[in-house]
């Protein structure tokens, strides 16, 4: 058992990834594998829950950076939810709130996929 797990759940064409443990340079490849698998399966509407994540370093943030363009290019998105203050601070310091949709609750993120984009 390593210090990190990705639990996957599906809700129609939306996939929820729940992260558990710590996400650092050692465990980031596990998240990469999970996201790559979703892209291979063409499941690009992705909600990631940080509720049970205890720690993140830039290696973890880099994974989201590395996939977001491809996911959006395929008509999907990666929405981030349920971050505690410590985790959010790292995202905030690196300017992620302007690049990613970050929501308090995963149900809001799931719901926002269903709504047509208003322009």
């Amino acid at each position: 058992m390593t210090g990190f797990e990705v639990l996957r759940a599906e809700n129609g064409d939306i996939t929820l990834l729940r992260l558990k443990g710590y996400l650092d340079a050692h465990t980031a490849p596990d998240l990469e594998t999970a996201l790559q698998r979703l892209i291979d399966e063409k499941r690009v509407k992705i909600v990631v829950s940080f509720k049970e994540l205890t720690y993140i370093s830039s290696a973890g943030l880099g994974v989201f950076m590395g996939f977001i363009e491809e996911v959006r290019g395929n008509g999907g998105d990666i929405k981030l939810t349920n971050m505690n203050q410590k985790i959010f601070r790292v995202f905030d310091l690196l300017g992620f709130p302007t690049l990613f949709e970050i929501r308090d609750d995963e149900s809001h993120a799931v719901g926002s996929f269903a709504q047509p984009k208003s322009r």
Partner: peptide
């Protein structure tokens, strides 16, 4: 210093760690 748009475009992540170290 990392430029976020540049990072998104180039998919590079390396310099983020040093930026964080300086900030923290």
């Amino acid at each position: 210093q990392p430029d976020m748009k540049e990072y998104l475009a180039q998919m590079r992540v390396g310099g983020l760690g040093i930026y964080l170290m300086r900030t923290l």
